[in-house]
Design a protein around this nucleic acid. Structure first.
Lengths: 159, 159
DNA sequence: GAAGTATAGTTTGGCAGCTAACGATCGGAT
DNA sequence: ATCCGATCGTTAGCTGCCAAACTATACTTC
């Protein structure tokens, strides 16, 4: 890691680089990948669920019957991706889709009983691993981290 | 966003949830996705490069001639993924691979002259967008953010 | 009833992401 | 010289990720 910083210093020394921004963005991305891998290799491994599959189930679990565009927005993925993930979760019998009562364009999503049971058993484990991930940060730093990231998200959403 | 928190409070109220950890992890992931999209839709769009394509070129640019497993580690992706991304970058003539002088198992990677020129023009733009991404945070918060994330990364790497 | 505009969700094409297994190569021990 | 264990990079299979285009449906205006 220190070697990396030296190599970067040497190559980019002559340029006018915003290193604070660079490290912030780089670390967000790397932490995100590492966390996803960690969760997929621990809690999610035996379920066959991917990170995104879990998140989609979680959103439907939280909100109850929902519509695809809303679930996609809450999960932070595109509608096209949501369609693909729902297809996968349907094949696992964790989630089902059915027509909207009055609008033929719309679709409703809900967890199956199997999916509900899975979430009840899985979420506490998932949350324990989330706590493990941030274990080295004290409470204040965790809140500051979440707050800074929310500011970034809001800034990008208002662009 | 506030509605989301209310729905979560209602569903998870009876469980013993570490909300700080949950929000920290969730926001890391969402910020990461949003940042990648932003960069792919702005600076990288006209180049045809993906986020990961850019990162791989950047790593080879910083280190000079490199080997795949090293580039994969620096870029935070698996060796299998690195092979696929290198294939894409080779087809764009941005990067080339050639045999290791003495070890038949190993491969060397280097940017082509075209790739070097692209990085010289692209990186300052990329870094400007990185600065834009974190624009709403002051200098101290940016450093704290990068530091907290590095602690998370180190913790996960030592598991 | 017809036309125009908008919305919802799906499909398409292409790229990325992982793990696990594989083939090629290397180095050490015998 | 041969064997064995380890390493390197690639391949296979599967899932996720996007934007853009498409089809079906809804609503408003005339």
């Amino acid at each position: 890691m220190r070697q990396t910083e030296e190599a970067i210093g040497q190559r980019l020394g002559g340029l006018n680089v915003d290193f604070e921004a660079m490290w912030a963005v780089s670390n967000i991305y790397r932490a995100s990948s590492a966390i996803r891998n960690h969760l997929e290799q621990t809690v999610l491994r035996d379920t066959g669920l991917t990170w995104t599959g879990f998140v989609v189930m979680w959103v439907v679990w939280i909100w109850g019957e929902s519509e695809p565009r809303h679930v996609a927005a809450e999960a932070g993925i595109s509608k096209g991706t949501l369609t693909g993930v729902v297809k996968t979760l349907e094949s696992y019998r964790h989630l089902r889709r059915f027509p909207h009562p009055t609008d033929g364009r719309r679709v409703m999503l809900a967890l199956t009983p199997t999916g509900e049971r899975l979430m009840l058993g899985l979420f506490p484990e998932f949350n324990r691993q989330e706590a493990f991930v941030v274990k080295k940060l004290d409470s204040e730093r965790r809140r500051d981290l979440a707050t800074s990231l929310r500011h970034i998200l809001e800034h990008l959403e208002n662009t």
